[in-house]
């Protein structure tokens, strides 16, 4: 067992532990924090995999932006307590069985075929330079399109977040102290 194997093993352990905590923790804020931990470990995986660009983007976009958004919403809505009622046992067993089945199927599929994936290590894979080149040539169209997708998402989020007068009047159980409007 050499050092890189140990490194990958430890990182994997942290990721799985974090993921378990996300799912099992009763307090949403703890979940978010665990998720951030998982994301950090995944970023570390990216570094190990020689995908520096992804590792940075992952930290910025996921751990930075999205998770902060989550936390922000949690705080805004005052959800930082154990509010979730206990689920019936049956539901959890069913969920475990479903997820377990999928896992078994996937693992069974990998078992025989993992060695068929060909290894071909090229020097500049995963570097910002090569990725950038590809992004602005071959992947220009999807890049532009995702920009437009962002516009649509932004409009949508604003639309949902803002409160128009007409709706205000209809609103029966208005909640005044929660005015989160700018999640876009």
């Amino acid at each position: 067992m050499n050092s890189s194997q140990i490194l990958v093993g430890v990182l994997s352990f942290i990721s799985i532990l974090g993921a378990m905590y996300v799912v099992l923790s009763k307090n949403p804020v703890h979940s978010v924090l665990a998720l951030i931990l998982t994301f950090f470990s995944i970023s570390a995986h990216y570094v190990v995999l020689n995908a520096q660009f992804l590792s940075v983007v992952n930290l910025i976009v996921y751990a930075g932006a999205i998770m902060v958004l989550f936390l922000f919403v949690l705080m805004l809505l005052n959800l930082n307590k154990d509010s979730e009622p206990q689920k019936p046992k049956m539901a959890s067993i069913a969920a475990a069985i479903a997820a377990g089945l999928l896992l078994v199927v996937m693992v069974a599929a990998i078992k025989d075929s993992a060695d068929r994936i060909y290894h071909n290590t090229v020097e500049d894979v995963g570097l910002v330079k090569s990725l950038g080149k590809l992004l602005f040539t071959k992947y220009l169209v999807p890049f532009e399109l995702s920009g437009i997708l962002f516009l649509a998402a932004m409009v949508g989020a604003v639309l949902l977040g803002k409160r128009d007068k007409q709706n205000e009047e209809e609103m029966t159980n208005t909640v005044t102290e929660t005015g989160g409007t700018d999640n876009g």
């Binding site: 399109l145 995702s146 437009i148 949508g156 949902l160 709706n167 029966t172």
Partner: peptide, 25 residues
């Protein structure tokens, strides 16, 4: 390209998530 399929699906769906909830109250 699968990337485009993905972006297409998202571009198709994200506005509709909003539309589905456009009756806010």
């Amino acid at each position: 390209n699968l990337v485009m399929v993905f972006i297409g699906i998202e571009a198709l769906s994200i506005p509709l998530y909003v539309l589905a909830g456009s009756r806010k109250t």
